[in-house]
Simulated scan of single mutants.
Amino acid sequence: MALELELKTRENIRGIRKAGRIVAACHRALSRRLAPGVTTQEIDRFVERFMLDRGAIPAQKGYKGYPYATCASVNDVVCHGFPDTEPLESGDIVTIDMVADVDGWKADSAWTYAIGKTTSSTDKLIRAAKAAMLAGIKQAVPGNCIGDIGHVIQKCAEREGYKVVKMFVGHGIGRGLHEYPQVDHFGVKGDGVRLEEGMVITIEPIITKGSADVFIMPDGWAAKTVDGAWAAQFEHTVAITKGGPIILTRWEE
C-alpha cells in the first residue's frame, strides 16, 4: 500500500507554527544556559518545564518508549543520546533535539551547541553542519524533489571535507511526529518525492569529521560514530509554500 502524503492547510501550518515558536524560544533560552558544569539531565528538566509552562507537551517523551523530553547527544553521539548527570566540559559539543506539541500539532528542531572554548576544527564542523541545513532548506520549494534537498546537503558537507550520516533522515511532521515523506540528506537531483505546497517537513542533516558509520548503544537509542569522530546536527521544521520555504522553528537570524 502506497504511503499517503498529507498536505497542510494554512490553518494547519499556523498550528505547527505555534508549536514551533515554543521550540524556538526554548532553544534561545538554552543558548544562554548551556555552559561547562551543566548536565544534560538538568537541561532536559528545564526543557520539559519550559514547554509545560507554555501549554506545550514535550512530544518525544514516551514516543516509542523514549523516556526523556529531549535527546542530548554529546561529541561522538550523533543523535538520540539520553540526558545524564555527567557535567558538560569546556570544548564539548552537544546537540539538543526537542519536539513540542501544541493542541495536537508538532514542531521539531535540533541544535548543536559549543560548550565553553572549543577548537577551530570543532567550530568549523558546527558551521558546516548549519550551512548544510540552510542550503537544504533553500531547495524546499514546490516543484523540486527530496533528492534536490539531499543532493545540495551532501555536496555542501563533502566540499568542506565532511560526511553525511545516512542512517538518520528528516521526515514529514504535523499531527504525527514522523509522517511521510522521508527526507534523505544525500541523493541525486530530481529523485524522490516531488515537493508540493502544504507539505511540512524536517530537514536535519548530521555531518561528521570521520566515518559516517554508526552503531547503536546498549540503551537501544543513542547512536555513536564507529571511529569516535564528533558529529554536529541542525534541524528546522519547514513549510513548503509558493512564496518559498518558511522555517517554523526559527530562532537565530
Rank of each mutant, 00 (worst) to 15 (best):
G150P: 02
G150E: 10
G150S: 14
V152I: 14
I153D: 04
E158H: 05
R159I: 09
R159T: 13
R159F: 14
G161A: 11
Y162F: 13
V164N: 09
V169S: 14
V169Q: 09
V169F: 02
V169G: 08
G170A: 15
G170M: 07
H171M: 08
H171C: 14
H171W: 02
G172R: 03
R175C: 04
R175I: 07
R175G: 15
G176W: 04
G176M: 03
L177S: 06
L177W: 02
H178E: 15
Y180T: 10
Y180V: 08
P181A: 15
Q182F: 04
V183I: 15
F186A: 15
V188Y: 09
V188A: 10
G190H: 08
D191F: 01
D191R: 01
G192W: 00
V193M: 05
L195D: 05
E196W: 06
E196M: 12
E197K: 04
G198V: 14
G198L: 09
I201T: 14
I201G: 09
T202G: 11
T202H: 03
I203N: 00
I203Q: 03
E204N: 13
I206S: 08
A212M: 00
V214H: 03
F215K: 03
I216H: 01
W221E: 04
A222P: 00
A223W: 06
A223G: 07
K224Q: 10
T225K: 03
V226M: 06
V226G: 01
D227R: 02
D227E: 11
G228M: 06
G228I: 10
W230L: 04
A231H: 07
A232E: 04
A232G: 09
A232F: 09
Q233T: 15
E235W: 06
H236R: 15
H236K: 10
H236A: 15
A239K: 04
I240C: 06
I240M: 06
T241P: 07
K242M: 13
P245C: 15
I246D: 00
I247K: 11
T249H: 10
